[in-house]
Amino acid sequence: MDIVISDFTKKYGAQRAVDNISFTVKTGEILGFLGPNGAGKTTTMKAITTYLKPTDGDIMVGKYSVSRQPEAVKKLIGYLPENNPLYTEMPVVDYLLFVGELQGIAKQDLDNRVLEMIDICGLEGEKHKKISELSKGYKQRVGLAQALIHNPQVLILDEPTTGLDPNQIVEIRELIKKIGREKTVILSSHILAEVEATCDRIIIINKGKIVADGSANELRKKLSGKNILRISLEDADPNEAFEALKTVSGVEVVDFLTMKESKFELQIDDGVNPCRDIFQLCVDRKWVLTEMTPVETKLEDVFRTLTM
């Protein structure tokens, strides 16, 4: 089920929370939605779930429009809202039965479906407890269980792993990945490592506009431009090494990192790997190679450059 967002704008009074954004999410894709606070992530997600009405533009979920056929869209979507609102006075099982009924699951399937969700989300030991008695991690699982109970085609998760411990985060990530194979998933997060680990594609949004769109690798490449290699040598004369390194094929620019020691940063042409040649050079000149590190631009840097 594809989600097509076209020229979507959302205004709160005079302020444009989301300003004319368009993108498409395909079936089987897990899209990570990144952005600083107030960038418009949650607004966009709420609009996809039909909770907020677009000021301008439209969002299509499958063949239904959120503004014209909201009831049809609601049936297709499983949604975990930002702060995971739950009826805390209800026991877990009762709550899931209630959501299942609301989602229109047939009576004879309802019990099985609820038990299945309890199993998938690891709530076996807590199913008869009141939701208010659960820890944050378990509450989050209840939230995920209610979003998944009607086996939706589209899953919208607004910060699904906040408040979870590292083990739970890994479990939830695995769960999302597993589910994401057949479904369309959009998730937002502040944790870049999480988005990188879970998502096939990342959209970075800032001040209501899309500033980057692509896989984690593509985004890194786009920003750093060239591949960078950092090397350190011992027993070498810095100037001699500088000249020699320039002659290695594939090395475009050589930079001194420090003048005293032989530490260099090399800019490498795309698609070339000069590591072997550099190593051979060092062997020939009897230099000791103490470091050779490809410098990766971190997603954090990409994020900071794009949104600062």
Partner: peptide
Amino acid sequence: TGTLEFLLTKPI
């Protein structure tokens, strides 16, 4: 508590 949002994104 935000459960209004939860309810209104269900088919109701």
